[in-house]
Lab assay of single mutants.
Amino acid sequence: VTTYKLVINGKTLKGETTTKAVDAETAEKAFKQYANDNGVDGVWTYDDATKTFTVTEMV
């Protein structure tokens, strides 16, 4: 189990959260659900070296 981080660069919501998951795919599903629940829709990137997902909403 690995800890993954999500950085949110939203128009109205900004911040970070973490989740523990067995792999990046599982973490991504959890983060996308979290973003969807919070009304964040944007471009996703993932950095495997730092285990960090970033979602950026276009203005």
Rank of each mutant, 00 (worst) to 15 (best):
V59R: 09
T54M: 07
A30D: 06
L6W: 02
T26I: 07
D48S: 10
T45Y: 08
F31H: 02
K32C: 04
T18G: 04
V59W: 11
V55N: 01
T19C: 11
V59H: 12
V7I: 13
F31S: 01
D48R: 06
V40H: 04
T17Y: 15
K11W: 09
K20H: 15
V59M: 13
V55K: 00
A24F: 14
Y4S: 01
D48Q: 10
D48L: 06
T54G: 03
K29Q: 08
Y46A: 01
A30H: 14
F31Y: 02
D48V: 09
E57M: 06
A24L: 14
N38L: 12
T18C: 10
A35M: 07
W44V: 02
E28Q: 15
A35C: 11
K14E: 05
E16Y: 12
D41A: 12
A35N: 03
N36A: 14
G39F: 07
A24I: 12
F31C: 03
D37M: 11
Y34I: 07
T19Y: 10
K5G: 03
G39V: 03
E25F: 15
K5V: 11
D47C: 09
A21H: 03
N9S: 10
T12D: 15
T2W: 14
V55E: 00
G42E: 01
D37G: 05
K29F: 07
D41R: 12
T52W: 02
G10M: 15
A21P: 02
T19A: 09
E28W: 13
A49W: 08
N38V: 14
L6F: 05
A27P: 00
V59D: 12
K14S: 09
M58Q: 14
K5I: 13
T12V: 14
L6Q: 00
A24R: 13
T54R: 05
V22R: 07
N38K: 15
K11V: 13
L13T: 09
Q33K: 13
T12S: 14
V40C: 04
K5T: 11
Y34C: 04
T19S: 06
T50M: 05
I8Y: 07
N38F: 15
T50D: 05
K20C: 11
W44R: 00
A30K: 15
M58W: 09
Y46R: 02
A27G: 02
D41F: 14
G39L: 06
K20V: 15
T12P: 04
G10N: 07
D47N: 08
I8A: 02
Y4I: 01
T56P: 01
N36E: 12
K29C: 05
T3W: 10
T18I: 07
K5S: 07
L6S: 00
D41W: 11
T26L: 06
A49D: 11
Q33T: 10
A27Q: 01
D41C: 12
